[in-house]
Write a protein that binds this DNA or RNA. Structure first.
Length: 642
RNA sequence: GGCGAUGUAGCUCAGCUGGUUAGAGCAUACGGCUCAUAUCCGUAGUGUCCGGGGUUCAAGUCCCUGCAUCGCCA
């Protein structure tokens, strides 16, 4: 079995971001995994460089189009090594051989009658680079770009996509794993349940010249998707390379959900028309949000791969992205979440386990892999768990369940930590009579770590390298050669390296490692992180801004049982909140309803008498008198107070 | 509007074809150890399994319905 795995070729109208990096990291990890499994693997990525939007972006940047695409393409190419992403080929759609292949294919499909010339009139949106239907419009505008489309009548070339619709439906149904995860297969099938329109595959040169000329009509260039998808073929030498057919048989694509339609529908029908078999599988992943907000340039919260690498290093980023997202679903990125993973999973669990194990080998076994003796039940348990881990890891990786695969590894890491406490090697070391048992325990730890190294290798290649070197064993090359128990040779020198992963301090004064530019509306929260360092009793304005004071309207109020001081209030501010207020001695529940009060809305929720309070009501107190804050007039619930 | 998905502990999620007291990690509290990166181990929890009906001896798990969120399509 061989695998030919691709990322999308990235559109060079913008710089690389987290989403691109995720696609590429998955592809790289899967490739490394399959190499470990002993398969032949080819990994391709690249850049997509034609189309109207590129021309616009170049103009905006004040560069010649070619110059512009060269630059951005390079940004992509250069982003990957830092993340330990090592493609075998980086293809560009402006490569001469790609252009030639696209033209050959067009000619062939044209000659066989699957491309025809026709007139089309419709509403064209430049931003979308496509025609919109009447129903799509919102108030006469494109729903995405909010600009009115142009009424255009054009003659164009069309690809007879509809001709292959039924074939595609059958193929998807006959091959349940063709598009995964299932939700995306269903999406494609649901789209195919309606009649397909033929695909317009040309753009008149009067409008666009930055594209591949149609070989049979030089007044047109090729529509960017028809051009771009073919990269998957040109990248492995279609049509002349003798190895092509064999490589293509193992073709699998990784994409993000936004380009499902071109890959799930255009591409298989195109391949069919060319007389080629469809790709083997399409793996569709979700989006990374940033702090639960959609990542977008206009919001300004785009996460750049380069910054992440600089802040955390390739292995941590790779681990985080694979561990945190379940493949196919959306997930949220935040520096807090990443630091939490780094500290708990990488530093405390794996890093510390590795460190304490090697230190003990140093202290109690003179830095050499000890010779194990007879084993107890506990020893066998650990060994069996480690062996099982390797199988489980493989099962989950095969299904693109990266987070579960890693979970399986961390289960063994946890078990090993427990094993240490249960056996207390430092106690065994006190009595020479226990030396055999001590050696056995240490050996079992080292072996477990070796198997952990094997599994994490595809995900964290740099860490695996360090660990293998420290254990005095080979960098794992295949599962077949490394997944048995007991491969470490007694007597081998062990060399403890520096910490694998440092603990990261969240509350350090320095800037957060990767700057998160939050949407403007969230600025207030952002500033919470700045600490009021100098304590001169005065706060600056920025500190004051941390308070989210709002007007809240009380909707319901009731006494909290067993407390004579607390009232449980439901307020609108403007969303519904529960607030527990210590005012029961001064106000009756009935008289609270309908009152407007001022609350602190961003107080950490706290449980009072079993009720979670999401805020605090402001009141003035003088001795035994307590008076609620109030406004001199009525305002809408939720109004800001400042 | 049509189709589909999702809604489980403070947070992120597991819970396959219905079957014993609903789980894991993180966070929290308390206790223990000292080999270790102030790490690790143990203990303690809290859940109207979105709401409402129904099928069943038995439902988080099946059916109907409502609500919320999201996706695709129109």
């Amino acid at each position: 079995m061989s695998l030919y795995l691709t990322t999308p070729i990235f559109y060079v109208n913008a710089q690389p971001h987290l989403g691109h990096a995720y696609s590429a990291i998955i592809a790289d990890t899967v490739c490394r995994y399959h190499r470990l499994a002993g398969e032949e693997v080819r990994f391709q990525t690249g850049s997509d460089e034609h189309g109207e939007k590129i021309v616009e972006a170049a103009e905006k940047a004040g560069l010649a189009t070619k110059e512009y695409v060269d630059q951005i393409s390079n940004l992509f190419r250069e982003a990957w090594p830092g993340l330990a992403i090592e493609p075998d080929n980086f293809i560009r759609t402006t490569d001469p051989n790609h252009i030639k292949t696209v033209q050959d294919i067009l000619q062939k499909v044209y000659d066989q009658g699957d491309i025809y010339f026709s007139e089309y009139s419709g509403l064209y949106c430049k931003g979308c680079e496509r025609f919109l239907t009447e129903k799509e419009l919102v108030g006469g505008n494109c729903p995405d770009h909010l600009t009115p489309p142009d009424a255009v009548t054009e003659q164009n070339y069309f690809f007879k996509m509809s001709k292959y619709q039924q074939w595609l439906i059958d193929h998807i149904k006959d091959n349940p794993e063709f598009i995964t995860p299932e939700r995306y297969k269903n999406e494609v099938l649901s789209f195919l349940s309606e009649p397909l329109e033929d695909l317009c595959i040309s753009r008149p040169t009067s409008r666009l010249t930055w594209g591949i000329a149609l070989p049979f009509d030089d007044k047109f260039v090729t529509y960017v998707w028809f051009d771009a998808l073919i990269n998957y073929l040109t990248g492995i030498g279609y049509p002349d390379d003798p190895g092509f057919a064999q490589q293509w048989a193992g073709a699998e694509h990784i994409i993000a959900k936004d380009i499902l339609k071109p890959h799930g529908i255009f591409w298989p029908t195109m391949l069919k028309a060319m007389g080629l078999p469809p790709y083997r599988k399409l793996h569709v992943h979700g989006y990374w949000n940033v702090n639960d907000t959609k990542m977008s340039k206009s919001i300004g919260n785009v996460v750049r791969p380069g910054e992440m690498v600089e802040a955390y290093g390739a292995d941590t980023v790779r681990y985080f992205l694979l561990r945190e997202m379940s493949f196919g679903l959306d997930s949220s990125f935040s520096n807090e979440a990443l630091v939490a993973r780094q500290n708990s999973d990488l530093a405390n669990d794996l890093g510390n386990l590795f460190s304490r194990s090697l230190t003990m080998v140093g202290k109690f076994a003179a830095d050499k892999t000890p010779q194990p003796g007879s084993t107890s039940e506990k020893d066998t348990e650990l060994a069996e768990a480690a062996i099982r881990m390797v199988t489980e890891f493989q099962n989950q990786m095969e299904q693109y369940n990266f987070h579960r695969a890693l979970q399986a590894v961390w289960e063994v890491i946890g078990r090993a930590n427990r094993y240490i406490v249960e056996n207390a090697p430092w106690e065994l070391a006190k009595d020479p009579a226990n030396s055999e048992q001590l050696a056995t325990v240490l050996y079992h730890l080292l072996e477990s770590l070796r198997l952990v190294t094997l599994c994490i290798q595809p995900v964290m290649p740099e860490t695996a390298k360090k660990m293998a070197a420290a254990l005095g064993t080979d960098y794992p090359a295949t599962f077949a050669d490394h997944s048995q128990w007991g491969l470490l040779k007694p007597g081998t020198a062990i060399t403890k390296p520096d910490s694998l992963f440092p603990r990261l301090e969240k509350k350090k004064k320095g800037e957060p490692a990767v700057k998160e530019q939050k949407p403007a509306k969230d600025k207030k929260n952002d500033k919470q992180k700045e600490s009021a360092n100098e304590n001169d009793g005065l706060m600056n304005f920025a500190d004051f801004q941390k308070f989210d004071l709002r007007v809240a309207e009380v909707v319901t109020a009731e006494r909290i049982k067993k407390s004579d001081r607390l009232l449980k209030l439901t307020v609108m501010a403007p969303e519904e909140r529960t607030i527990v207020a210590g005012i029961a001695e001064h106000y009756q529940p009935e008289e609270m309803v309908g009152k407007q009060v001022i609350i602190v809305a961003n107080l950490k929720p706290a449980k009072l008498m079993g009720v979670t309070s999401q805020g605090m009501v402001l009141a003035a107190k003088d001795g035994k008198t307590l008076v609620l804050s109030a406004l001199s007039d009525t305002v809408p619930a939720g109004s800001k107070v400042s």
